[in-house]
Deep mutational scan, measured.
Amino acid sequence: MLDDRARMEAAKKEKVEQILAEFQLQEEDLKKVMRRMQKEMDRGLRLETHEEASVKMLPTYVRSTPEGSEVGDFLSLDLGGTNFRVMLVKVGEGEEGQWSVKTKHQMYSIPEDAMTGTAEMLFDYISECISDFLDKHQMKHKKLPLGFTFSFPVRHEDIDKGILLNWTKGFKASGAEGNNVVGLLRDAIKRRGDFEMDVVAMVNDTVATMISCYYEDHQCEVGMIVGTGCNACYMEEMQNVELVEGDEGRMCVNTEWGAFGDSGELDEFLLEYDRLVDESSANPGQQLYEKLIGGKYMGELVRLVLLRLVDENLLFHGEASEQLRTRGAFETRFVSQVESDTGDRKQIYNILSTLGLRPSTTDCDIVRRACESVSTRAAHMCSAGLAGVINRMRESRSEDVMRITVGVDGSVYKLHPSFKERFHASVRRLTPSCEITFIESEEGSGRGAALVSAVACKKACMLGQ
């Protein structure tokens, strides 16, 4: 009897593995994704193909990295998701002549009506938060230079001027797309009239992360975010950046690689679950690469896999709870928690219980395998993109072996128990001629924006502006 049951459990697990095998990517698959990513990057950089390229390769006008001589107080704003952060950054000489960066910050959550109302409502709310922060720190009387981390696709015309191309991540505030974001912020500050600010720089969160990590390690020339969304930036040779005049030196390019796949480059790798996630998203047909990796989508992918296993009578005796059938019910943090389970399955059992399920031991094991399959594919897909960037940098610099540091931020990278190990191992397999160091950014977005502002202020002083 026991043997029969054991055989049935083994057969069930084997069927589960057959279904989950769809998520496995072979090294040849990853090399294919990497080569296609490089081709799209090239198209994004070139003037004649930029418009139709899915990977936009947006110039950021960040050319210099901090040298350690900029000092002063800077205000930093960070808008990239449902939370908005205001930070005071003091850049100065530390002990023994070292450079020191001290920060104080406060988080504000953005109400739904500000995210989806008008641009005026959104930026009025942001300036209200700045006003509140300055009151708390008794700094209303000071006109501070301000660095703005704005983590949406922007076409820069200068370091302090950028046109919002399109909202992502659930934002829909009308009247912002096609307009200068810094102008919208300046107008809102003017409307309030109770404080003055000098907006000197606007950067993407990947750029802010790279600059913040450069402060720790001067070989950091790539910034990457794996959180709600997924994106990367890197220092490109100016001669390859056709959208900006000049051939000397390097400029940081914001790849906006989340949109890779929007022209069909990933079609052969998309599964039924991916198509369902895409169809029910706020932007169907867009940001397809990001939807395979980002935390906004990972939990939902797992939920759809679990429903398939229920329908195949391989999980929960073929019956799903009402909660499990509800879109968004299986949160991405559950994926991390399930994979963090120590082996007694308590954590998995508790999560499934909150979803109205009474799982068996085998159910718990199957749910864990589903989570591992989805998150491992995410790590491997992400590795193909980064390997594409790094191999490109090595080739354009004609280096036999390139040493490089990548600064990384984002909740999936930082909080998932195995993502970074799987990701690092896969990147290294795909970049055999590179020695890569990964560092995690601390308060990256805010500190990085302030350091970019410090560079901009120093330049302005040198130019006598």
Rank of each mutant, 00 (worst) to 15 (best):
K12I: 15
Q18Y: 12
F23T: 13
M57C: 10
T60N: 01
Y61G: 00
R63V: 00
S69G: 12
V71D: 00
L77M: 04
G80A: 08
F84R: 00
V86Y: 02
M87K: 05
M87A: 06
G92H: 03
E95N: 08
E95V: 09
S100V: 11
K102M: 10
S109R: 09
T118A: 10
M121L: 13
M121Q: 02
L122G: 07
H137I: 11
H137V: 09
Q138E: 12
M139I: 04
M139W: 07
L146E: 04
G147M: 06
H156W: 15
D158H: 10
I163Y: 09
L164V: 14
L164I: 11
K169T: 14
K172P: 05
A173I: 03
D187I: 06
R191C: 03
F195V: 04
A201E: 00
V203T: 06
D205M: 02
M210D: 00
M210C: 00
Y214S: 07
Y215E: 00
E221L: 08
V226D: 01
G229L: 15
M235L: 08
M235V: 06
E237K: 05
G246R: 03
V253Y: 00
N254F: 02
E256F: 14
F260H: 02
G264Q: 12
E268D: 01
L270F: 10
E272F: 06
E272S: 04
Y273M: 08
S280L: 11
G285L: 12
L292E: 07
G295S: 13
M298I: 15
V302R: 00
L304A: 06
N313I: 05
L314P: 01
H317D: 07
S321R: 12
E322H: 14
E322L: 14
L324K: 00
G328P: 07
A329S: 15
E331W: 15
Q337T: 10
V338F: 01
V338S: 00
G343D: 04
Q347P: 01
I348H: 05
I348V: 04
R368V: 06
A370W: 00
V374E: 01
V374G: 01
R377T: 00
E395W: 10
E399L: 06
I404T: 13
V406L: 04
P417E: 06
R429L: 15
P432Q: 12
G446V: 12
A449L: 09
A456T: 04
